[in-house]
Design a protein around this nucleic acid. Sequence first.
DNA 1: GAGTTTGAAACT
DNA 2: CAGTTTCAAACTC
Length: 433
Amino acid sequence: MGFSDGDGCKRCNCKKTKCLKLYCDCFAAGYYCAQTCSCQGCFNSPEYEDTVLDTRKKIVSRDPLAFVPKTLQRVGESPASDVQDINKSTPSSARHKRGCNCKKSMCLKRYCECYQSNVGCSDECRCDGCQNVYGKKEEYGSHKHIAIAEATNDIPEISFDQKVDTILHSELSIPYNMTPFTPLLQYSDLGKDAFHSRFSYGRCGQAPEADIALSATHEKPSILTKSSDNHKMVGETCQTIPDLVSSNVQLYNCNSKSIDGFLPHRHGNDSLSLHHNPRLMAVACLPSQTTKVMTNDTSCQLCPESGSFSSLSSRQLCSSPITSVVPFGENKRPNDLDSDSRCYNISEDDDMPEILKEHPISFSEVKVRSPNKKRVSPPHDHFREIRSSSSITALRGGRRFVLKAVPSFPPLAPCTDGKSSPSKPALNSNNMK
DNA sequence: GAGTTTGAAACT
DNA sequence: CAGTTTCAAACTC
């Protein structure tokens, strides 16, 4: 359970776990421990990057959603409304990714993860006597289903684009005041060009940049980092994902050689936005043909109003474990995007790879592993949405959309005062393995 | 600040 | 996979 100081960094007090388990808030949040942590025998520092990475891999192999932000934006509600007053408002449109399991606290204390995240309980919660002031689970259950219905073809007056937008919005919207989150930006050129991109790597507000290059596609991505410190993990991390998750959702940059248009632009110390609003569209893809780009401690938000991605400071974020398939068709049909629209049009992909035309993917292939039987959330509902929305594809020449859930696996973002002291415990492999 | 309670995470 | 243990944060005094 986290506590943080003003700069948004977690502070932990771990004594036994060496800050290498999810008990440790710093570790769980994707941060290295800070000097101000009171932890003992901490291994969660850049010094032990390899150990940290190993541990993270193991945890993710057990629970692909382990490092996913804890709260999700709800369908059909603008996060902007939640942002009006970060300190006072209730992000009523958010919910905890797995729900809580409170028995005694009635979801009225910070023992409750929902309450702690300032979100209401949902029907995914298994809490007893829920009195969550941000919303009792019964209230949210009905709300969600309404929202899902809105995202489907069941409501004929909603346009195709609106439906897509609804889905994208629901998955990408990021309420404030949530768990820090590192977005997973994924890219597929579907066997075409490799691309280069930059992403920032933050230390709770600072953002040393790393250059990465990805090679596509039928293999695990090869990600080269060219950065000053601690960035190797990003590549390693990304490589683990395809093995760990049977499904994923990706951002695609179709036909592009760079995603510069998606580069985060930093405003001040820890506020980022992604400009240039590359046109987005959902495409079909084969899971094996994906390459992933992971950004760091900034999160991307698909802003319905501006039609652009933006990124929020790590402390202000939460996001979904599910991301929509959102390719960047920078050279295609510029008119597809309404200039001021909330919607991203789904384009016909003229140069859609043959393999995609010949091997349509059914939703039966979409699955989300949830090793933690107790609370894996995912995506039943999301996939209901998606499944429903998939009927949309019939409207557009039989295009199939495969939206797969991918666990966010945020690269560690050491706090500004992240530990790098020499007084670290000696690395003992016995402790780590 | 010490002790207790709580529920998530980890383990069996 | 259900039950149990461990853990660290939240809470109380």
